[in-house]
Design a binder for these strands. Structure first.
Length: 505
DNA sequence: TCTGGGGTCCTAGGACCC
DNA sequence: TCTGGGGTCCTAGGACCC
């Protein structure tokens, strides 16, 4: 616990939806919902206008449509959000060397490490200046929480939303927390909340009163002890700038449950290829292959296999995933398949063979085989591992439009499905004559486009085209702020160096 | 039109070793 | 020929977070 409120938590307001509103003038002030548009999609982010109808993140899309039938429904554009996120993270980096991104739209900053703020007044000034810079640079608003610990800073930013700043004076922690629901404490989710409620514990004050022994009895050693500490306002977790990735995974939910064993096997193979592509893209290899299967009834199981050494070989991962699939009964249908690799290293078994061979050669000895045995001693953890985030974006972006294949059983995508993918709602386009616009919707061989740009002050006009109109083509996002950076320009250089990125709420 | 996708951490049991 | 106790690795599942 610090004497001054020098831990800052930034949370962008309704990030995905706000970015879409900033780039599409006709959506400003209107309910906007970003998420998967397939039959099994869920809400990623709802604009504040949409929240007034009761729409919130993680809600099934069908339910959102019933609540807010007139909202704009858009597919997420992760490359675009990542570009904006990069601009925001760059501003945070000017405040301190210690910036811990939690997702595309959220981060902790240690102001003390940046030597910028020694007291409450200074911290508040830094926070307000940051908010102004973010608005000027991205055209979007963010909320700031300032406190002497991560937990309190995060609660403060939540309280500041939208478009505000809240500072909690150190020393006020216990009084601030006491009357609130236990659910505000990080790590207390629905299950733990229920568990505690059945024990008569609903507020943070109840937690303190119950005492550590009782909490440990209810929740177990680790969880109970840490909850008790948090309830007292004790939270010494440091802001950590870079974390090594521990696993890489991809998964797909299908529009329609899969029954055909051959099709299931094919999808597992595809997922294995995608997973390895991501793994290699991040410069990693891994020892443990995990297959995930969600059945028709939503029951979910995993099967895993640990290899003798780390690999990034597509064939090795694919064959392991296929072996694991043989262990799973899929009768009744499969809703989701996933393939992951954990036990990451920044070298591969093959590298070690090569290295062993080279060493043997240097010694003038023969046969590197014996040396390779030592590879088994390799711990799964990576040593140096630069701050390479394991990107996400791509997978989910595809997921939103994908699954189109599901409707047609085992057939390849139809022309209509291909067109749907090409003209995803919300995506930018350019018309040879009419200029920049975005897809409002498509279907029945038509695509509807609204022609407007981020700088416009009035909604643009709407035109409809046949899906294969030669004058119409997909385009990169335009800058939100005049002279700003576009998604296309930022996406490529930023992505590899981006901090750990996850889907923001 | 019921429930995404990408992660992290923790627990618990069995195997295996000393 | 009634019996302990760790430590580590592997596997599976679950809670949680954005």
């Amino acid at each position: 616990m610090r004497a001054a409120p020098t831990i800052l938590h930034l949370d962008m307001d309704a990030f995905f939806a706000a970015a879409e509103q900033a780039s599409k003038p006709s959506l400003r002030g209107k309910p906007v919902v970003v998420g998967g548009l397939g039959p099994r999609g869920v809400v990623a982010t709802a604009s504040y206008e949409a929240r007034r109808f009761g729409v919130h993140s993680a809600m099934p899309m069908g339910q959102a449509r019933r609540l807010a039938p007139n909202a704009a429904y858009l597919v997420p554009r992760f490359a675009f959000y990542r570009a904006i996120s990069g601009q925001v993270m760059e501003l945070l980096g000017r405040l301190s060397p210690l910036v811990e991104p939690l997702s595309l739209d959220e981060a902790f900053v240690d102001l003390e490490a940046g030597g910028l703020a020694g007291d409450s007044a200074g911290a508040r000034a830094v926070g307000e200046r940051l908010r102004a810079e973010i608005l000027a640079t991205t055209g979007l608003t963010g909320s700031v929480g300032l406190a002497g610990s991560k937990m309190l800073a995060k609660i403060a930013s939540e309280e500041a939303k939208p478009n505000g700043l809240v500072l909690f004076e150190p020393g006020s922690e216990r009084a601030l927390l006491a009357p609130r629901s236990v659910r505000i404490i990080p790590g207390v989710g629905p299950a733990t909340g229920d568990h505690l409620r059945r024990a008569g514990i609903t507020t943070v004050a109840d937690v303190v009163e119950a005492g550590e022994d009782e909490l440990v009895r209810i929740l177990g050693r680790s969880h109970g002890a840490s909850l008790y500490r948090m309830a007292l306002g004790h939270d010494d977790r440091p802001v950590v700038a870079e974390r090594d990735a521990k696993s890489v995974s991809v998964e797909d939910t299908f529009d329609v449950d899969l029954h055909d064993r051959l099709r299931i096997r094919l999808e597992v193979e595809r997922l294995a290829e995608r997973c390895v592509a991501r793994l290699r893209g991040a410069g990693h290899s891994g020892r443990t292959i995990v297959l995930k299967v969600r059945r028709y009834d939503f029951s979910t199981l995993t099967r895993s296999e640990t290899l003798r050494g780390p690999t990034d070989d597509p064939l090795v991962v694919r064959e392991a995933a296929e072996r694991l699939l043989e262990l799973v009964d899929t009768t009744g249908g499969v809703r989701l398949l996933g393939v992951g690799v954990s036990g990451l290293a920044d070298y591969t078994q093959e590298d070690l063979f090569a290295q062993a061979g080279a060493e043997a050669g240097a010694w003038g000895g023969g046969g590197g085989g014996a040396g390779a045995g030592g590879a088994e001693a390799g711990t799964g953890t990576s040593g140096a591992a630069a701050g390479v985030g394991v990107g996400m974006g791509g997978g989910v972006g595809e997921g939103g439009a994908a699954g189109g294949a599901g409707g047609a059983a085992d057939a390849p995508p139809t022309a209509t499905e291909t067109a749907t993918r090409r003209w995803a709602p919300g995506h930018d386009v350019r018309h040879a004559v009419l200029g920049a616009g975005w897809v409002q919707g498509s279907g029945l061989g038509r695509v509807t486009v609204r022609f407007e740009e981020p700088g416009s002050t009035v909604p643009g006009r709407v035109r409809t085209f046949v899906v294969d109109d030669p004058e119409l083509e997909p385009a990169d996002p335009l800058p939100l702020v005049p002279g700003g950076v576009t998604g296309a320009e930022r996406a490529a250089p930023v992505a590899p160096a981006a901090p750990v990125v996850r889907a923001g709420e």
